[in-house]
């Protein structure tokens, strides 16, 4: 048995991300996001990032508050639960500090599907009558096969990195996700490099037993890291629910201008402390 070439630490994984990189994040709103990874981006002081995610919330909000982001491509942004708007994101867009490319969730995925398929653009249903097409600079064509239908085309979106939080990973980077994959399938096929954080480190045999549960095969994974509670304060069903108390404290504390306490309370920060 050879040593793992994929397993690394959260610090090393993030250290390999250059300033200015575009990063597609997995999950949706408060659910199964790679949030420990996101906080490590902040700890390492990354700058000028582009964040790509159909429905970001906590992740884009805290990255905006920490000054790590300059561009975002998203379809809907909110803290969700019952927390309403994402105040840090909102302020960053309104002040012009962060530039938004607005999407309609599936248009973002159409762009990812284009990149995943290796073609320059992808048709998408709908969009007719939406001014998002104007502000995002999309084009439409008449069906070249003559049905008379017009179809909008979304240019390929190829993130430098896709980062997902999985339920389990093995030493070779195979990543298993239970429940909804959200948008993670298209995201991981589109990116130049796939990074996996995972709740548990599992035996390779367990992947061989149920290979259809593997969302990302190991050969596509550039690096993987075992991060228990990696989606905190969000959920990783059925292992843990949204920690509404921690999320509410983040919303309150960050509105007062600081994220220090929240960052210190994160599970990966507390695990680093000596026993």
């Amino acid at each position: 048995m050879t040593a793992s070439e994929k397993l690394t630490t959260l610090e090393e994984m993030v250290a390999a991300i250059p300033n200015g990189a575009s990063i597609g994040l997995g999950g949706s709103f408060l659910h199964r996001g790679p949030f420990a990874f996101v906080r490590e981006l902040i700890r390492q002081g990354k700058r000028d990032l582009e964040i790509i995610k159909a429905s970001p919330g906590y992740d884009i909000d805290i990255l905006c508050r920490a000054g790590c982001v300059s561009r975002v491509r998203a379809g809907i942004v909110a803290m969700e639960g019952n927390f309403g708007l994402a105040g840090g994101y909102r302020k960053a867009i309104e002040s012009g500090a962060v530039k938004l490319e607005e999407h309609a969730c599936m248009t973002l995925t159409a762009g990812l599907r284009a990149a995943g398929a290796g073609v320059p653009f992808m048709p998408v249903g709908g969009v007719h009558g939406s001014q998002i097409a104007e502000v995002s600079g999309w084009k439409k064509i008449a069906d070249p096969y003559g049905s008379g239908e017009e179809v909008w085309l979304i240019p390929a979106i190829r993130p430098d990195f896709a980062v997902i939080h999985a339920h389990a990973v093995d030493r070779d980077g195979n990543a298993r996700v239970e429940g909804s994959p959200h948008w993670d399938r298209a995201m991981t096929r589109a990116a130049r490099k796939v990074l996996v954080t995972a709740e548990t480190l599992a035996r390779p045999e367990s992947f061989a037993e149920r290979p259809e549960l593997t969302l990302v095969p190991g050969f596509m994974t550039a690096a993987a890291v075992h991060v228990p509670q990696g989606a905190w304060p969000g959920s990783l069903a059925p292992v843990y629910d949204v920690n509404y108390e921690a999320a509410a404290r983040y919303v309150e504390e960050s509105a007062d201008g600081s994220i220090a306490e929240h960052m210190a309370a994160a599970p990966e920060a507390r695990q680093e402390e000596p026993a």
């Binding site: 379809g75 809907i76 309609a104 969730c105 998408v124 709908g126 998002i132 502000v135």
Partner: peptide, 21 residues
């Protein structure tokens, strides 16, 4: 204005794709 918003709202999610279809 979209370019210089007074308030940036969450965004439409899937509505631009779903509403016409």
């Amino acid at each position: 204005d979209w370019d210089t918003p007074k308030v940036r709202l969450p965004g439409g999610g899937g509505s631009a794709v779903m509403m016409p279809t």
